[in-house]
Nucleic acid binder design. Structure first.
Lengths: 329, 329
DNA sequence: TTGAAAGCGCTAACAG
DNA sequence: CTGTTAGCGCTTTCAA
């Protein structure tokens, strides 16, 4: 329960000056082996561990070797995979990662960003919540690098890594139309989220391209949880004229749709969902999905961030990764 | 791209002393409103943001309000849910979280712990990798609080939160025996992981209790990935005398077993797995599981850690959470 | 090869 | 109410 010993303590025990301890701790070779050995003995004896925060303070202008990562919801496997990839890349550069979930709450996101920047992170990877991100400008102005992932940030032009949500949704819904479906329902999260907007736009665009009218009663926006999606899906099949297919705009919606539509002896309704998920191929019938690669998104974002930290000052870039329609019939 | 302005800069602009700026920044009410307003104007003008690392340095003996979290693999939904719960609890206490994955590598775990402690985290939540954790003693001695989760740490007596793995495995396998199974295969990860040991022990114990002999060729240890588990499962059914059931010792094994055993028109083999997973109930046949509550594990661990950080010095506690056998026939 | 002095950005403890 | 002084643990700079 003793406090942390300091270099001064080590110096006293080893009978040298504080500077000599500093040199040994930092592996400088200008210390006489004998002296270094005495210092190292003292270090072990006292259990000395360098205080990196104090170190960073003095080494001004130096990187803190810390990244901040703000995802929407870490418990969601999509964001978990993304976060894991960011951490992997960070590890290779000897960086450590501060993490937090915004839970789609802009205020919470701001608090996390503020807390991370107060700790002087070198860069931020952010899955932006809905709402204006002008507040980030002051951090950018102070030199903090920012890369947005998965979604575009409103009111801010930074590097970002996204997938082609609209084109993906068009492909998925077109496929359903090709297969003869006409009453295709839509299940989606709140439309203030950029990806949700794009995917819904793709849904509408694909229908319009074939002259199929949008049927408001087949369209459910604002679903936040698997349970809500399941309830919405179950309600759809109880209609006099149920849909023959459902387009689910993310993994939570898809799994919810499976909950609501599979089992119970009903003839299953075809589901196509954005985001791949484990065992989608083992359901009966299997679920066709638009697969993204969250690990690739995270890794790309982290690499982009490191190139900025290393001094790249070229104009903001947008990297658009493709989605892959995984047809499972 | 300007550097971060300091309190000194703000003071100069506002025409006050540095201390007055400090007082305003920290919301002390002893500053005359007019002066405070001038300072706040200067803060906005310069885009000043308090440097919390410098702050912590001076406020000695104070908490850094930072937690370190080391999981095995953040991309695994189980650990992601656990991590998310830790972060939730931390948020409520105004703490932020440093995170890292050990990928079952003790060396990597040590590096993460060292990096986190060098940043002077107040406490650590660790999913310990296999191997001796005596190295943690020096951090404990320095006052860092540690709670282990999911697994016991070899050679270290700290607070920990685990589930009753052995009893759970006994319950699961006994259930299979009750249903008339006798040739029950086992698929598991490397036995140097504590949970794996315990679950295998439970498997063996349940068989022994009924006088069913262990059949070495039905037992596959050391499987690390879903693919390896799938291959092992597929190999089992190609035997002359295939097992009639499989006990999968974690979610990766279970999903791999589903990969290897479901579909293809074969009569499916009964699977019982440790860890629940999404849509286990929607497979045909559905998969019976031993459900854990990773969020509860993480939240409990974080709460335990905070009680230690708050000064609780009672002897180390072990919290054992129950598993729940979710029978899906 | 080693050490002394100065100071990173901030706050505690006092003065005024 | 405001300012001055000292110093957190460390590194930079310069001197011995």
């Amino acid at each position: 329960m003793s406090q942390h010993p300091t270099m001064r303590d080590v110096a006293a025990v080893a009978g040298v000056s504080l500077m000599t301890v500093s040199r040994v701790v930092n592996g400088e070779s200008t210390v006489q082996p004998e002296t270094a050995a005495r210092v190292e003995r003292a270090i072990r004896q006292l259990g000395y561990q360098r205080n990196d925060t104090a170190r960073q303070l003095r080494r001004k202008g130096q990187a803190t070797q810390t990244l901040g990562l703000v995802v929407d919801d870490l418990a969601n496997p999509f964001f978990a995979a993304l976060a894991s990839a960011v951490e992997d890349v960070a590890r290779q550069r000897q960086y450590i990662v501060l993490i937090g979930s915004s839970n789609s709450d802009l205020q919470r996101e701001r608090e996390l960003v503020a807390a991370f920047c107060a700790r002087r992170v070198d860069g931020l990877v952010i899955v932006p919540a809905a709402g204006s991100h002008r507040f980030l400008r002051e951090y950018l102005a102070a030199g903090t690098k920012v890369v947005c992932v998965d979604r575009r940030a409103d009111g801010l032009d930074t590097d970002r890594v996204v997938v082609d949500n609209r084109q993906g949704a068009v492909a998925a819904v077109s496929r359903l139309l090709d297969d003869g479906h006409e009453r295709i329902a839509y299940l989606g999260d709140h439309r203030d989220i950029w990806t949700v907007q794009e995917r819904y736009a793709g849904y509408a665009q694909a229908l319009a391209a074939r002259g199929v009218p949008l049927v408001p009663s087949l369209i459910k926006h604002g679903l936040k949880t698997r349970q809500e999606a399941a309830a919405a899906a179950a309600a759809l099949v109880r209609r006099r004229l149920p849909p023959t297919a459902v387009f689910a705009s993310n993994d939570v919606m898809t799994v919810g749709a499976v909950d609501g539509l599979y089992g119970g002896g009903r003839p299953p309704i075809t589901i196509v969902g954005f985001d791949d998920f484990a065992l989608a191929d083992k359901l009966s019938p299997p679920v066709t999905v638009l697969a993204q690669d969250p690990a690739a998104i995270g890794a790309t974002a982290a690499q982009l961030l490191f190139s900025r930290i290393s001094g790249d000052t070229s104009p903001p870039r947008e990297v658009v990764l493709a989605t892959r329609l995984v047809v499972r019939a």
